[in-house]
Design a binder for these strands. Structure first.
Length: 420
DNA sequence: TCTGGGGTCCTAGGACCC
DNA sequence: TCTGGGGTCCTAGGACCC
């Protein structure tokens, strides 16, 4: 048995946690660069504010003066997420952290101690006690069914935020009430195609033949159907598998038109990507850079391009990554565009041990590279100060917009809330 | 004026091998 | 006239997730 536990309106709840005056009011969090709505309090939802809606479009709506808006504060959300996960880890056999605000919990053996829904309430109460955040809990035989149960726990107040789907009849009743697009793994495209085949509810999907699903779609959807039937196809992944790619990309606060600005941005992204790579204890051989103008600007020529390089030897030295990223940038930069976004992608990873020197590589690996990178990472993680490579510059005129950012309540001494 | 930032998996098709 | 039957690896693109 699995439980899926997730925090209600996670980002928004993190914000109101430290602003009790805003509880019960419409609150939203917008994406990086203050672009789109990405989290809404219940009150904001009932105003009709949609997920993913561009912020500038609702800015001047009649209700907007009543809505409290926050820029994304990932330092805050990541810290609170960790506290939620720690609480769940402490009381359950094992968990898989699935995203910043949700986890699958392994419930094996729990049934010998107490009814599963009681355990669900216990998780909910413990998380609330430790963090002040409210979670929803869905319990079932497979991950996909647990997701469905969680969905129901959110939707119907009478459930008290916990739904146990162990009972097959209850399962079928819920399947009949759920439309296919609310099933985990069924997105917009597939649900449209399913609808055209007369498959509208999750129950329709469960009752359709596996052969037909496999023929018209693929093995992924077949697995979803099996999971909805109670056949476990997806395991609990307690330990995150090694990443296959690392991307660092951002939209710019203002459009970039100067090469020197773009060069700075690419250096900054390359540096951040290298940090992530080292924290994964990996070395990469593939470094790619992309940039693009706005796809929404009708009166401008759209330009998007990407270039990549293969390093002769796998590396996680920031200097190597910056070198090859800026080399690629030179090849795709075109004057005269108003660039909106750019990024750096790393791939083709090697673990420490298998990094092998290239027979024909003239340049020997950099001396003391590992020690230097470790020193930099330690300085930057110590809270004592920040060092960076000169390429990214000091005045980052291209940096993203975060005009409504809340304090780093839990991760910066100066921002600690004061209790009176 | 203004539209996020990450990821994964699968499939089809091309190039190549014997 | 007539052209097999296996494979592998790589890439691009499409679908999905949060």
């Amino acid at each position: 048995m699995f439980a899926l536990v997730d925090v209600n309106s996670f980002y928004t709840s993190c914000e109101t946690l430290f602003r009790p005056d805003l509880q019960g009011k419409p609150v939203v969090v917008v994406s990086n660069n203050d672009g789109c709505i990405i989290s809404r309090s219940a009150e904001a939802k009932s105003l009709g504010i949609k997920m993913g809606e561009p912020f500038f479009k609702i800015k001047n709506n009649t209700y907007s003066s009543r809505v409290h808006i926050f820029s994304s504060n990932y330092a805050l959300y990541a810290d609170l997420s960790e506290r939620v996960m720690q609480t769940l880890t402490a009381i359950s056999p094992s968990i898989e952290v699935y995203s910043i605000d949700e986890a699958f919990v392994n419930l094996s053996g729990v049934i010998n101690c107490m009814p599963l829904s009681d355990f669900g309430h216990e998780m909910k109460n413990k998380v609330f006690k430790n963090t002040g955040l409210t979670v929803g809990v869905g319990i079932a035989q497979t991950k996909t069914l647990a997701k469905l149960a969680n969905h129901a726990a959110k939707k119907w107040r009478g459930t008290g935020g916990v739904v146990d789907l162990s009972n097959i009849e209850r399962q079928h009743r819920l399947l009949a009430l759920t439309s296919v697009e609310d099933v985990w793994g069924v997105g917009r495209r597939i649900s449209k195609k399913l609808n055209s085949m007369g498959i509208n509810t999750a129950l329709d999907l469960v009752e359709s033949s596996l052969w037909v699903i496999r023929k018209h779609f693929n093995v992924v959807l077949e697995r979803t159907v099996r999971e909805l039937r109670g056949e476990q196809c997806l395991e609990l992944e307690e330990f995150a598998p090694a990443k296959q790619q690392i991307i660092c990309s951002r939209s710019f606060g203002n459009r970039i038109t100067q090469y020197s600005d773009m060069h700075q941005a690419i250096c900054a992204y390359a540096e951040r990507a290298s940090e992530k790579l080292r924290s994964e204890r990996q070395f990469c051989r593939f470094v790619s850079v992309f940039l693009r103008t706005s796809p929404h600007a009708d009166n401008e020529v759209y330009y998007a391009n990407q270039a990549s390089m293969k390093l002769l030897t796998p590396s996680n030295d920031t200097r190597d990554i910056i070198n090859s990223a800026t080399n690629s940038l030179k090849r795709i930069w075109v004057d005269g565009h108003r660039y909106m976004k750019a990024g750096v992608m790393l791939a083709d990873f090697f673990s420490n041990g298998v990094a092998q020197l290239n027979l024909f590589d003239d340049s020997s690996p950099r001396k003391n590279s590992a020690a230097l990178m470790e020193a930099i990472d330690q300085l930057n993680n110590s809270g004592k100060g920040k060092v960076w490579f000169a390429g990214q510059g000091i005045e980052k005129t291209w940096a993203m917009k975060r005009e409504m950012l809340s304090p780093a309540y839990t991760t910066r001494y100066a921002d600690l809330p004061v209790a009176r």
